[in-house]
Nucleic acid binder design. Structure first.
Lengths: 132, 132
DNA sequence: AGCTAATGAGCCGTAAGCAG
DNA sequence: CTGCTTACGGCTCATTAGCT
């Protein structure tokens, strides 16, 4: 249930990294293409654990993001384009956009909520101050 | 930013034992690498202690350090380059950067602290001197 | 002894999986 | 498709252990 909570406090800090980190990414190490050949069944029964997480490289991410700003819901042709441009599989592209949309929406909702509570706080604050 | 608390908050995650070990003993001190004939796999029983400490050669270290000055937090592509350039495993590269960052940070913090206490000392010193 | 690779725990962001 | 959950890769920080 609560994977998501609204922090409600300014980033007190967080351990760790400066807020600007866009550093994420990775590349497939030299030319792997793990798709296909690996016989991983899609049986829903048991997969004790082998999910292959593709790590997107900086450049791939940049391409995807740019496209996203133009159109968050690209049609098939566009996706095809992206496949070619990034070298990723169509599936990865699709999933990326899905996740991105979802994430964005969630963030926006959280932001609105935060703003609302902020306004409330400000209101009460001004109220108390004016009463004295 | 300077202060860092370790929250130690709720233990949400169950478990989490992940261990991937790619083990690769790369011992390349400048030249020779021949084989790792000694393949000590980790048998879970009997050697609580045999860590393979990689000794970095001068040239490898130079490459890493130079890259570090440019970017202390390289992305995967860059790391991949480093893997190729140094002949070290990706894991070793990653760990090196982690340790380096940590070390740097610690040193910097210590330096700041030292400076602060220095200022205090100077202040008191000047105070006592002026009083006489 | 000091340096510093390596390890482990705890956490975060997010790609992948699945239900609806 | 959305929305939620899960598992993975990487990070920090503290600690352990192998060199010179």
């Amino acid at each position: 249930m609560p994977q998501q909570f609204i922090p409600s406090s300014m980033p007190i800090n967080g351990g760790g990294h400066n807020n600007n980190s866009h550093n994420r990414s990775s590349i497939s190490s030299s030319s792997n293409n793990s798709l296909g050949s690996m016989s991983m069944k899609k049986s829903k029964k048991d997969k004790p654990s082998t999910r292959v997480r593709t790590v997107l490289s900086e450049s791939q991410l940049r391409i995807l993001k740019q496209m996203y700003t133009q159109n968050s819901r690209p049609d098939a042709v566009t996706k095809d384009h992206l496949v070619e441009a990034t070298g990723l599989s169509a599936r990865v592209i699709r999933v990326w956009f899905q996740n991105k949309r979802c994430k964005d929406k969630k963030r926006q909702t959280a932001m609105k909520e935060a703003q609302r509570t902020m306004e409330k706080v400000c209101f009460f604050l001004s109220f108390f101050l004016s009463s004295s």
